[in-house]
Simulated assay, not measured.
Amino acid sequence: MKTLFLALITFLTLTSCQNNKKQNKEKTNTISEQTEEKKEETKTILEKIAYAHGYEHWPSVEKIEFSFVVNPGEQEMIRHWIWYPKNDKVTLVKENERITYKRDNIMQEFVDTDKAFVNDSFWLLFPFHLEWGVFNYETIEGVKSPIQQKESTKLIVKYPNEGGYTPGDRYDVYLDQNQHIIEWAYYPSGKKEPALLNTFEDLSNFDGIKINMIHRNPDTGFQLNFRNVSIN
């Protein structure tokens, strides 16, 4: 009888420990989930967009290669870039030309090349540029996107009138419920009418970093693609 009693006490003790461990684990998971939810709530819309496209992976990126292709087909224009973000070394490969320079000390002879790189990399990583840039912004909920007429959040980005290669530019960015960009409208130097209106399509994953590979406007025939993308 004494042996049975001790065995029963041991069983109840083990069961109690297991239940406590389970409750503690569930409590820890709940706290962790609540912490993540709180972190998400405190993020700005710009941070939410950047992280929805894998911004947390950016610090580990050593090298990016991509081809910027306008008007894919017989009349296409291609610039291929090799970029080492940590030391900001850039190489342009275009037809039989190869130009390498450092962005922290741009000589006059490389200014036009750098303008092209800023443009092309801006298209490639626009969600991250929302974290890197300096501008004013506002959001409007429940807006129909111009091309696809999808329900979206409209983010209006206005760059300062001084500084950079294209001061005063404005972008109207249309976001879905996952903070992914579905379209944008570009207003150079704050003009009243957009110079460009296009989609963001084919969202592809490169080791956690998400990039829209196709941009187009069915009405105007405009199309811009990315090819040969690699991120290491």
Rank of each mutant, 00 (worst) to 15 (best):
D207H: 01
Y101P: 02
L124F: 13
F222A: 09
D207A: 10
N29L: 02
I211A: 13
T139V: 15
K2I: 00
E33Y: 10
K115V: 11
P127Y: 08
L224P: 01
N217C: 06
T13P: 04
T30D: 12
F117R: 05
G163V: 08
Y174T: 11
I99M: 06
T91K: 05
E162Y: 02
N212D: 10
N136P: 00
T113L: 03
E36A: 07
K48C: 10
F126D: 07
M213D: 02
M1D: 14
K115I: 15
E201M: 09
V143M: 03
P218N: 01
P127C: 15
D176S: 04
D114E: 14
S204L: 01
F11R: 00
M213G: 03
D120M: 00
H80P: 04
S145Q: 12
V61S: 04
K39C: 05
I231F: 10
L175K: 01
P188I: 08
W123S: 09
F126N: 11
N205K: 00
S67F: 09
E131N: 09
T113H: 11
E138W: 03
Y171C: 07
D202S: 00
V61A: 00
F66A: 10
A116W: 06
I140H: 01
P218E: 08
N20F: 13
M1S: 14
P85T: 07
N161C: 04
I106V: 15
I9C: 12
L92K: 03
R79E: 15
V111A: 15
R79S: 15
K39L: 11
D207E: 08
E41T: 02
L155H: 05
